[in-house]
């Protein structure tokens, strides 16, 4: 198996900052670290297993209903995740609310099935799915880290900024919790990455 399969998704071909896939759900769940981590793990699980099964079934899927078969496969895993979250992590499932359902239409999953799993053997497809899920999760967690630390002064709900700072006049940045700041932060991430990797710069 080629190294690129599990190395690229983290930096060179990161699904969020380079391929621009799966933005929809990535931004709304990054106000706090906990839902972001759960979301990252859920997406990794779904990308991994739906790629694996799509690859196992790749020679049997009738071409005409290909998209629907893929969607059914993906939604099967998403419903499993949703049911397990409701049973074992109820608070988090309430915070994620509709965004769990939106994993179905997360372009990363469909994108990886179409672009990789349908043309490759099950094991590399599984690794590709997991790596892409983690590459996506990495951005999610980084965003949530910044937003929770600056926006609420906490990490995983524990206070990080000492009380003394607040007494000295430090204030939590309310703006960074608001949705638009997530977009601006992703923009800055892209700037940073392309500053380092000049070959990604658009003409």
């Amino acid at each position: 198996m080629k190294k690129e399969i599990y190395q690229n998704p983290f930096f060179k071909a990161n699904p969020v900052t380079v391929l621009v896939l799966g933005i929809c759900s990535s931004l709304a769940v990054t106000v706090k670290l906990e839902p972001a981590c759960v979301m990252a793990l859920s997406v990794t699980f779904v990308t991994g297993f739906s790629s694996l099964f799509a690859s196992l079934l790749r020679n049997t899927i009738p071409n005409r209903i290909r998209i629907i078969v893929q969607l059914v496969l993906v939604s099967l895993f998403v419903i499993l995740i949703d049911q397990f979250l409701k049973a074992y992590a109820y608070d988090v499932s309430k915070q994620l609310s509709v965004y769990v359902g939106l994993i179905i239409t997360n372009c990363i999953i469909m994108g990886r099935i179409e672009a990789f799993a349908l043309g490759n053997k099950p094991w590399p497809s599984f690794v590709d799915g997991i790596a892409n899920g983690l590459g996506y999760g990495m951005i999610l967690v980084a965003l949530a880290f910044i937003r929770e630390l600056l926006g609420s002064g906490t990490l995983f709900g524990h206070q990080i900024i000492p009380d003394g700072w607040y007494e000295a006049g430090y204030m939590n940045n309310g703006l960074i919790i608001l949705p638009p700041m997530a977009l601006i932060l992703v923009g800055l991430f892209i700037w940073l990455q392309r500053g380092i990797q000049k070959e990604l710069i658009e003409k």
Binding site: T17, G187, I190
Partner: peptide
Amino acid sequence: PKPLKGLGISFIITGLMGI
């Protein structure tokens, strides 16, 4: 700025529109 061209600046503009 060159690294911000295309994708990066689109994100930031969408954010500003959101505000």
